[in-house]
Amino acid sequence: MSERLRIFLTVNGAQAELEVEPRTLLLEALRDHLGLRGTRTGCETTTCGACTVLLDGRSVKSCTVLVAQARDRTVTTIEALAGETDLHPVQESFRNCHALQCGFCTPGMVMAAVSALEEGRVCDEESARRALKGNLCRCTGYHNIVAALLATADAQKRPS
């Protein structure tokens, strides 16, 4: 029997305690141990970005992060973005700009977009495309996804 680790972390604002094998990936912990299925399993090599989550506010590919590396840290998944009655501004822009088709890449794209906006890395089309570079979409050709990211950035610049 292999050694197990007890891991404490904050996931979507709630404390979580997991007992896992040392080789358990953050993606596996979120999906299989915590039942958070919004984070997608894609390539499992960081190529596609479907597994993107925020770790202490910065986007990471959860398919290559060990859950032990997230010990005592904060993880945010797509499930935490929307309120009970309203969408996160990035989700609203994705909807308004028709920035999704099959929806497989959408959670990772949204999380990468949220991180880029919070870090102030989006100011024009080139920077928006650069911010999403590590996330693949096989349906839309990125035009509407980039438009959604730019629409959110523009809305954040306007005074409330």
Rank of each mutant, 00 (worst) to 15 (best):
100 L>F: 15
123 C>Y: 12
78 I>D: 10
78 I>T: 10
55 L>Q: 02
136 L>H: 02
19 E>F: 09
7 I>T: 00
18 L>G: 01
35 G>D: 06
3 E>V: 14
5 L>N: 11
77 T>I: 07
141 G>E: 07
109 M>C: 02
22 P>T: 06
101 Q>T: 04
60 V>L: 05
5 L>H: 05
25 L>Y: 13
43 C>V: 06
22 P>Y: 05
59 S>V: 12
52 T>L: 09
88 H>R: 12
63 C>M: 02
76 T>A: 14
40 R>I: 07
103 G>F: 09
158 R>T: 13
84 E>M: 11
152 T>W: 01
111 M>F: 14
119 E>M: 11
61 K>P: 08
75 V>L: 10
131 A>R: 04
154 D>W: 12
112 A>R: 05
110 V>N: 00
145 I>L: 13
158 R>K: 13
138 R>S: 06
8 F>P: 03
115 S>N: 04
43 C>T: 09
159 P>A: 14
14 A>R: 15
97 C>W: 11
33 H>Y: 13
24 T>A: 14
100 L>P: 01
82 A>W: 09
5 L>W: 15
60 V>F: 03
58 R>H: 14
101 Q>C: 07
31 R>L: 02
118 E>N: 15
66 L>R: 07
90 V>F: 13
118 E>M: 12
44 E>I: 00
160 S>H: 13
83 G>Y: 07
78 I>N: 04
69 Q>W: 12
44 E>G: 09
